[in-house]
Design a protein around this nucleic acid. Structure first.
Length: 571
RNA sequence: GCUCCUAUCGUCUAGCUCGGCCAAGGACAUGGGGCUUUCAACCCUAAAACCCGGGUUCAAAUCCCGGUGGGAGCACCA
């Protein structure tokens, strides 16, 4: 009997929503609510068939009446369904309070939005499980890394509001890495190879072993000491992990563990000339530093086997490893190499050029840390390849800046308007139209105004327009750079335009960053436009970094107060 | 060439582990409407997707097999 009531309820809902109730649909609902009914499917479908027939023979008004009787229950079910719609961050088997994650950048360039994804994923998991979150500078290539970039990461991470429980550097652990390398050589799991680069590459591709692989541990050990002592030049000798030269997974074909780099290291100076490779270094540092769950982007997925093999060969604890997809931003790049090329060519001004997706650029452009975090949380922790539109970032950002942006009038390409038949008027304009109206910009207007060139184009002699928050004027004559108008009485449908009053204005410019790349992935020469115009004189009260909404134009941030340069944020 | 990963509205995703609450939910973008002396914000609303083909099952986005598309690896970079 219970089952029949349930069937009746969902048949009514189904019929109400789709005109006629459907047996399969009602059946599904009933089973999910009362799994025990599955015991006799034949009887159940007969019952539901009967109920559905009854409900379908109801007329509309009695159907609606019956539906309304369940309205509260349906409402509760609907809202429960709508609640869980954000990407989830779950680690299978993670233990509360025991999780340790890390963000592990190489200090070889500016932090960008792609790093942020990695950092935020690691941070989110650590916080979710009430664990520890570490900052690990992975600096094992003295040719690439610089203190300046370490400093920049610190600055950007702090701005993003990321707090770390611990910070460490790969390059502080080189001695330990050496001792583990020796252990591996000694037990025959690694050897010194003196093939040239091309030979190694070719053999790896072909799955062929070289003669050095059979070298006795004692000899390799001696040669490794020689490497440490500087007996070899760069590329003359490397230490390789001895695994399987014909493994289908090519990362397991005896990868490089250590190689010679004679460049001076920004942190360690000339202390070391032999440096571990990423493949050798990362698992060891993670394991030794107590990382329980290591997330990295998908391109390392095939080397997860290697990560585990190295640690088991060493008898070290193996952390859990996870992969996530790289973040791509439509029409933008984060590649160091490409960025450098654009800077060199003079196409962009530097790493904080407002068109870029570096953290420095985003900060300069008035993007709020919270907006970046929200975006990442919406994107989630999946391995599916994706291209995000900048609009998604700016939509998050707009929610945050809208309440704080001061509203001002900016007229681009100004056209002078002289209004006859009007006199001085004191106006008070709200800085935050929807906030408590306790802040104003105040002007004493006379008969001379400026309006945007684009607005001037759309109005013709004889028509009336409304100067926003002021009064209507009727256009008398209009030339390319001068409009004569007359005060007019208010008209219901007058179009509303913004203005600045003479002499209460400052000259200014607004840079409008667009997509850096064309659809063909080439540099877009039109990616930065500049509009010049007048902003009302209240702008003198702004500070660098203040965010405004230029009404009918968009959000902007003051970038250079001296020159009154603004950067456009978004509509 | 070999190997790995991946596939849900235009975009980003929830759902997939454990088949039925999914005639598929949310967000962004888009269209319409409301409010408004901004083209913003806010509110309402519309259109919009399970890559393809087989199979298992009373029931498949979900499980199995086979294709196809996309991404990545095969560095003495990380």
């Amino acid at each position: 009997m219970e089952i029949e009531k349930l069937a009746r309820k969902y048949a009514v809902k189904n019929a109400y929503e789709y005109g006629k109730a459907n047996v399969g649909s009602v059946l599904s609902k009933v089973i999910s609510k009362a799994p025990e009914a599955k015991a006799d499917m034949r009887a159940l479908s007969a019952l539901i068939g009967k109920v559905v027939d009854e409900v379908n023979s109801l007329d509309r008004s009695s159907l609606e009446e019956e539906y309304n009787g369940y309205a509260d229950e349906f409402g509760a079910e609907e809202s429960a369904k709508r609640a869980a719609s954000k990407p989830k961050f779950e680690l299978p088997g993670a233990v509360m309070g025991k999780v340790v994650t890390r963000f592990s950048p190489e200090p070889s360039g500016f932090m960008h939005i792609g790093h942020t994804k990695a950092a935020l994923i690691a941070e989110t998991f650590a916080r979710q499980y009430n664990g520890m979150f570490c900052l690990h500078f992975d600096d094992t290539n003295p040719e690439n890394e610089r203190q300046e970039f370490v400093d920049q990461f610190h600055k950007d991470l702090e701005w993003l509001g990321m707090g770390f429980d611990k910070e460490y550097y790969s390059s502080d652990h080189i001695e330990h890495i050496y001792s583990l390398a020796k252990r591996l050589i000694d037990k025959g799991s690694a050897y010194v190879c003196t093939c040239d680069r091309e030979t190694i590459k070719k053999n790896r591709f072909d799955g062929r072993e070289c003669e050095h692989r059979a070298r006795q541990p004692a000899e390799s050990l001696e040669m490794f000491e020689g490497m440490l002592n500087g007996d070899y030049e760069e590329e003359q000798a490397i230490v390789r992990f001895k695994y399987d030269m014909s493994h289908q997974n090519t990362t397991l074909r005896d990868p490089t563990m250590l190689r010679i780099k004679r460049a001076t290291h920004y942190r360690q100076g000339d202390k070391y000339i032999v440096w571990p490779s990423y493949y050798f270094n990362t698992p060891i540092i993670d394991s030794v530093m107590g990382i329980t769950d290591a997330m990295r982007s998908k391109e390392y997925e095939q080397s997860e086997a290697l990560y585990r093999e190295i640690l088991s060969a060493l008898g070290l604890r193996v952390p859990n490893i996870y992969a996530f997809s790289r973040l791509n931003i439509k029409g933008n790049i984060t590649s160091k190499r490409k960025l450098r090329a654009l800077i060199k060519a003079g196409d962009i001004s530097g790493y904080d050029d407002p068109r870029l997706m570096t953290i420095a650029a985003l900060r300069r452009r008035g993007v709020q840390p919270k907006a970046i975090r929200e975006l990442m949380l919406n994107i989630g922790f999946s391995k599916a390849e994706s291209v995000i539109d900048q609009a998604a970032l700016f939509a998050e950002n707009r929610k945050i800046i809208d309440p704080i942006a001061k509203h001002l009038f900016f007229v681009s390409n100004p056209i002078k308007v002289v209004v006859e038949g009007t006199t001085q008027k004191d106006v008070r304009l709200k800085l935050h139209p929807h906030g408590r109206a306790n802040e104003f910009r105040e002007y004493r207007t006379n008969n001379t105004f400026y309006i945007s060139g684009s607005d001037a184009e759309t109005i013709n002699p004889g028509e009336s327009v409304r100067l926003k928050d002021l009064f209507d004027v009727q256009i008398e004559t209009s030339t390319a750079n001068h409009i004569r108008a007359r005060a007019a009485s208010d008209e219901v449908n007058a179009s509303i335009i913004h203005w600045v009053a003479d002499p209460y204005f400052v000259e200014c410019s607004v840079s409008l960053p667009g997509d850096l790349l064309t659809d063909e992935e080439e540099y877009n020469p039109d990616s930065m436009k500049v509009e010049k115009g007048f902003v009302e004189s209240y702008a003198r009260n702004l500070k660098k970094g203040d965010i405004v909404q230029f009404e009918r134009f968009g959000y902007a941030v003051l970038d250079d107060k001296e020159r009154m340069d603004f950067i456009f944020i978004s509509k």
